[in-house]
Amino acid sequence: MHQWQPKLGLIQETLLLTLHARALDARLPSPILGDTHSADLADTIDYDFRKLKVKPNLVVTTALRAKKLDDVVRAYVAAHPGCVVLDLGCGLDTRMVRCDPPPNVDWYDIDFPEVVHLRAEHLPGRSHLVGADLTTSGWLTALPGDRPAMIVAEGLLPFMPGDSFQRMTRELTCHFPSGELAINGYTRFAAWAMKYHPTIKALGIKAAQGFDDAHEPESWGAGLELIEEQILTRAPDVARFPQPLRALTRLTARSTTLSRQGARVLRYRF
């Protein structure tokens, strides 16, 4: 098998962490996401994934949040034929393949130019690729603004400095007539703790952005309205977690406060 070496900056290299987690889930006897495309892609990369030190907790939570976000996208696309889907900070995710939208949906995979270049070479498909630094303005001009939009931002919030995520959200909701925003909502503690994951710490990335109250984005001036908070410790899929992680997760699920420090999926309409 021909292998290739990814040439990425520090922040961009974190995409390999989530790719590896999805690949490991796909190889489990009872996977949660079952993304075999990610597993096949990871096998083509000449990279020592062992140094990422991915633990079982990260594997199952990464797979579960991706599954729940996929479900949100599928539901929106089914209810809004001909809509636009934006996957912000898409990395090397295969979400479009998993969701398999109909041809009348325009799907945009958006990330740094070097990441988009890798996608074009190693993840060919029918999505539109947009290379952009999401902390800057101007990249939205490449997108249609006359249709409803489903916007997904998985794992992006902690890596955008200052108020750049809020500013980007305001620009997005102004660009499209209506839509939904779906994110995995990091609390402030979860974003702070993320800095101490071995891989994030080794790369020297200062991940710190988060919010505790799921209603806080409603104050960003982006016209957002919270419509759902999914606390993933209470998802039926926890039954597939390996022990003792399954028992610990179910114990955590008894406390809403503790559960919110883990994975949660937030949906907003605008």
Rank of each mutant, 00 (worst) to 15 (best):
residue 72 V to L: 05
residue 107 W to G: 00
residue 6 P to L: 12
residue 124 P to S: 09
residue 52 L to R: 05
residue 159 F to T: 06
residue 241 F to V: 08
residue 258 L to S: 11
residue 22 R to M: 01
residue 214 A to R: 12
residue 164 S to T: 15
residue 158 P to Y: 03
residue 19 L to V: 03
residue 13 E to D: 14
residue 119 R to V: 01
residue 99 C to F: 07
residue 69 L to T: 09
residue 110 I to N: 06
residue 134 L to M: 09
residue 28 L to P: 08
residue 134 L to D: 04
residue 107 W to Q: 01
residue 40 D to P: 00
residue 46 D to P: 02
residue 28 L to M: 15
residue 181 L to D: 01
residue 171 E to I: 01
residue 9 G to T: 12
residue 105 V to A: 01
residue 164 S to C: 09
residue 18 T to R: 07
residue 143 L to D: 01
residue 33 L to F: 07
residue 97 V to G: 11
residue 246 R to H: 10
residue 216 E to W: 01
residue 250 R to G: 08
residue 54 V to Q: 01
residue 6 P to M: 10
residue 145 G to W: 00
residue 48 D to P: 04
residue 79 A to P: 05
residue 213 D to Y: 00
residue 270 F to P: 01
residue 86 L to V: 00
residue 30 S to K: 14
residue 35 D to C: 02
residue 142 A to L: 15
residue 196 Y to C: 00
residue 72 V to N: 10
residue 233 T to L: 11
residue 14 T to L: 11
residue 82 G to V: 03
residue 52 L to K: 04
residue 58 L to M: 13
residue 223 G to D: 06
residue 17 L to H: 12
residue 15 L to W: 11
residue 134 L to S: 04
residue 22 R to G: 02
residue 228 E to P: 03
residue 216 E to R: 08
residue 102 P to W: 09
residue 234 R to V: 05
residue 245 L to H: 07
residue 249 T to L: 10
residue 246 R to D: 08
residue 124 P to H: 11
residue 128 H to S: 13
residue 231 I to M: 11
residue 182 A to H: 12
residue 107 W to A: 02
residue 141 T to G: 11
residue 183 I to Q: 00
residue 100 D to V: 03
residue 75 A to M: 06
residue 49 F to N: 06
residue 62 T to E: 04
residue 123 L to R: 11
residue 224 L to A: 05
